[in-house]
Amino acid sequence: MYSKEREQFEYFKKPCLAMLGGMAKAGTIPSNMCNTRILCQTARTTVSQCTECGMFFIWHHNILLNFKQKEFYLFLTHIKKYVFQQRSICFPDGEYRLLMHSAAEEISMAFTEEEWEDIKEVLTEAAYLANVYAILKGTP
């Protein structure tokens, strides 16, 4: 990432769950913010994970999703079931988009077919790399 993009990314770090719970070792990270590592990145989407608390962060355009480890894998399993051609609708601009509803009834996310395939691919690759890091760290 370019330094300006990295600065913007650093600005939005969330309070680290491990630090808030008093589980992090003193001096491992400078404050109570997550110390993230990028697991996978494309032009549209970045997936990172906190090295302390394990929280996943998914950045896609102007959307930021945060998931604990279990929820991240459940989310990935859930979205892999979506078939674009079966769930997409035509928007007023004439482009078909897949609608994915959020936990908040008033908020839905819309993805073009290209965006949808991209986000599924990035999340899958990020999950594989997160599993590799977990194996190396010796955690399940």
Rank of each mutant, 00 (worst) to 15 (best):
S108T: 05
F57C: 07
K137S: 10
D118C: 08
I29T: 14
R37H: 05
K25F: 04
L99I: 13
I89R: 06
K120D: 01
I135L: 11
T45I: 10
P15E: 06
T45P: 00
K137R: 14
R44H: 03
I135M: 10
K120Q: 13
N32C: 06
S102K: 00
I38P: 00
F12G: 15
Y128P: 01
E114I: 06
C40Y: 13
L74A: 12
Q8S: 11
E10M: 12
L99M: 12
P140S: 13
Y128V: 10
Y96I: 00
F56H: 04
M19C: 14
A126R: 05
S48P: 00
R6D: 11
F56L: 09
A126C: 08
C40F: 11
K120F: 02
K81G: 04
E71M: 07
L99E: 13
T124K: 10
D93A: 00
T42E: 06
L129R: 12
A103R: 11
E114G: 03
F91W: 07
Y73S: 03
A127Q: 06
L20V: 09
S3A: 13
I29H: 12
A134Q: 09
S31K: 08
C50S: 02
E52T: 10
I135S: 09
Y82F: 15
F9E: 14
C16M: 06
C16G: 05
I63P: 00
E106K: 12
L123V: 08
P92V: 07
E10Q: 14
M109Q: 02
K14M: 10
K25Q: 11
K13N: 10
S102Q: 07
E95I: 11
I58S: 04
F91K: 10
F72R: 08
F111E: 00
C16S: 11
T139Q: 10
G138K: 07
F12K: 07
L74D: 15
R44L: 15
F67A: 03
E10N: 15
A134R: 15
K4V: 14
N62P: 01
K80Q: 11
E105V: 09
I135H: 07
A127G: 03
Y2W: 11
K68R: 10
E71P: 02
T28V: 15
H101W: 05
I89K: 13
V83Y: 09
I119F: 10
C50A: 01
E125K: 15
N131R: 13
Y96Q: 11
L74C: 06
R37P: 00
W116A: 04
Q85P: 00
T77C: 09
G22I: 05
E115Q: 12
L136D: 11
A18E: 09
L76W: 02
A130S: 14
S3Q: 11
T51G: 06
I135E: 08
E52V: 15
T51S: 14
M19N: 11
L99C: 09
F56G: 02
V132L: 13
T28A: 03
Q49Y: 04
F67Y: 14
W59I: 06
T28N: 07
Q41W: 01
L17I: 12
F56W: 06
E115R: 01
I58D: 07
P15Y: 01
T46W: 00
F111N: 02
Y2F: 07
W116R: 00
F9L: 13
F67S: 01
L74N: 14
C40L: 03
N35F: 08
M1C: 08
E121V: 01
I29Y: 08
E71I: 03
